[in-house]
Structures are given as C-alpha cells and as structure tokens.
Design a protein around this nucleic acid. Structure first.
Lengths: 164, 164
DNA sequence: TCAAGATCGTTCGGGACCAAACTATCTGCG
DNA sequence: CGCAGATAGTTTGGTCCCGAACGATCTTGA
C-alpha cells in the first residue's frame, strides 16, 4: 500500500535522512509525536463527538471554558483556549449568533467584555461533555492506567517551557 | 492579576465544577494537557523559528515531509502532516507559488501528484531545521532526560488509539 | 471491451486563525 | 483637569482548514 507509512517507518527515514547532523533526536521524537497525537485526537473527537452538534473544536473549547468558570472575561478565554483575541472575537460572534452564549460589556471597566452561557449553551454542554469525556477515555486507552498522572504532568512541563 | 489562571487553578476549578459527574478525570487531565502543550509549543515555534522565514506551521510541516522523503505523494504528505487533502491542495499552491516546491503529475498513474522541493526549498530546510530542533529541545527542557523516550512512546499510543 | 465503481487531486463555501491597525476606555502624572 | 500612554476588544486582509461535490483517471469483472 504505497503512500502509507507507519510511525516506525517514518521515524527511521527521519533518522537516516538526518544522520550526521547535530540534532537532539529524543526531543524531536517527543515534539513530533506530541503534534501527531494532539492532531489525531482532535480530529477523532471532532468527527465523533462535535460534528453531531455542529460545533468546531475551538467553539467547543470556548464554550467549555465559559461553562467551567460560570462567567469569564474574553482575554481569559483566549488564554485558556489557546487562541488569539482576534480569533476569539470571531468565534464568540459565531456562538452568540447561535444563541449559545452572551457577551456583556463590563460595568466597572468599559473595555472589558464578559461571556456567559445561555440556558441553551449550558444544556448543550451538560449533554455533550460526558460524551466528550468518553472520547478522552478512548484515545488514552492504550496507556497504562497508573501512568496517566505522570503523563499529564510531563505535558504540563512542556506547556510551561513553551510559555517563554 | 485577574484574567490569568494558573494550570493548577484551572484544574481545581474543573474538579469542583464537575464534581459528582461520572467522568474519567485522569483521562481528561491527559488530553487537556495534551492540547495545551501542543498549542503552546506550536505557538512558540511559530513565533521564534518560523516567522523569520514567513512560514506557517503547516507550510513548514509540508516542506519537512517532502524534504525527509525526498519526493512524496500528496496523500502521504496529507497523512503525515495531519491535514485533509483539501487543505494540502491549498498549502501546496501557496508553497509552489513561492518557489519552494514543485508538483509533478504521476506518469504511471495520471491521478497522482508527487511533490519535490526545489533547490531553494532544500536550502531553506537545511538552514531552518537545526533552529527548529533547538526549539524542540527548548520546549522539552523541563522533562527528565531519561524519561523522554517513554513520553514519546506514550504519545505514539495516543496517536494509535485515536486512529479509529 | 467496456461500463460500473474506486481512487486521486482540485474546487467551493464557510468557519477558524493570526498580526497589525483601529476604536474605545481607563490610568497616571504633571 | 487634561492629555500621553497603557489596555481591551474589534476589524481587516490573507492563509489555513474541512467536508462535500466534482472531474479526471484507473481498475475490475462480465
């Protein structure tokens, strides 16, 4: 089946092609697989869980953050969701037009905007999140159960290190 | 500093908000931190390494795959890069217009298109990749060195599990 | 041999995505 | 008080991103 490489084939081709260069191959393996895993998991969840509700990944994450924090300022949503404020602005407009959340201009500080889920938004998240969590369980099913917290911690370390 | 939560604060808020629901919190922590880490690392690398060459993340990954495999069929680039063939088609057009790669229609099979870097494309990757690898080392610097292969392996498991 | 079906890449429409420019608001210092 | 600078969110312009529809090409089986 030409055009289909296994992960092993790919990594061995990489090693061959880059032999002799002064590179950190272990760091490379971690980041390469980090992006592959995140991408594969995201695509999987978009297809299986989010598509039914006609939600994009980012739309879901934004709803999720606002749901968890009850009410949230846009800059904090942007930070949690990992998108720029420009992107968030557009996504909020989309979600607001679908009646899932509401913007409220800050009263003390007129520059701020806070976001709150509507009843429909809360209902959606309440029904959707357990399904989302099933998908989370699904994509982690190949890992040793007791190893899970250590992996989560390692990923937190990467996040920290990438923040400067 | 309102509007800024630490990772710990966020996870504790999540635990509180979802208390009582029947959820797999450990799987949740792994996937949530997986996306955070991938996002943070990607943003970091886009800003520090890729921006100089005016490359997007996906553009770089596409060049990378074609570089590693010398010559590659589009469907295999799409698969390795983790994008749809529709997306790839547009990205190839962009990169081709900048003279970094060339499309060639398959000779045996007229449906196929293979991609090959131009001299300029190869030069770019040769100069860029060592810098990219430095950034890979940077974002993994918080991890125990001997632990690296195990983390890469865990991420491979997630990728596998997400592929169905 | 040749039509039905599979497979490949492109196009289309609509949303996501970012940096930079912009508007509105607040803060602080003279 | 008043204005210079900081800060917040939105708009703009260009690319990425996907599913679905499409045209072109190959394969297969009667």
């Amino acid at each position: 089946m030409p055009g289909q490489h296994t992960l092993d084939e790919t990594e061995s081709q990489v090693a061959t092609r880059l032999a002799g260069m002064d590179l950190d191959f272990e760091a490379m393996a971690v980041t390469a697989n980090l992006f592959r895993a995140a991408n594969a998991a995201r695509n999987q969840m978009e297809r299986t869980v989010l598509a039914k509700s006609n939600l994009t990944w980012t739309g879901f994450v934004v709803l999720w953050v606002a749901w968890i924090w009850e009410t949230a300022e846009t800059r904090e949503i942007a930070s949690e969701a990992g998108v720029s404020k420009a992107t968030l602005s557009g996504v909020l407009t989309t979600l607001e037009s679908r009646g899932l959340l509401e913007r409220k201009r800050g009263e003390r500080d007129g520059r701020l905007v806070t976001v709150e889920l509507t009843a429909a938004g809360k209902r959606l998240m309440k029904g959707l999140f357990p399904e989302f969590n099933k998908a989370e369980r699904h994509v982690t099913r190949g890992l040793d159960r007791p190893q899970l917290p250590a992996i989560a911690e390692a990923l937190r370390q990467i996040t920290q290190a990438a923040r400067d």
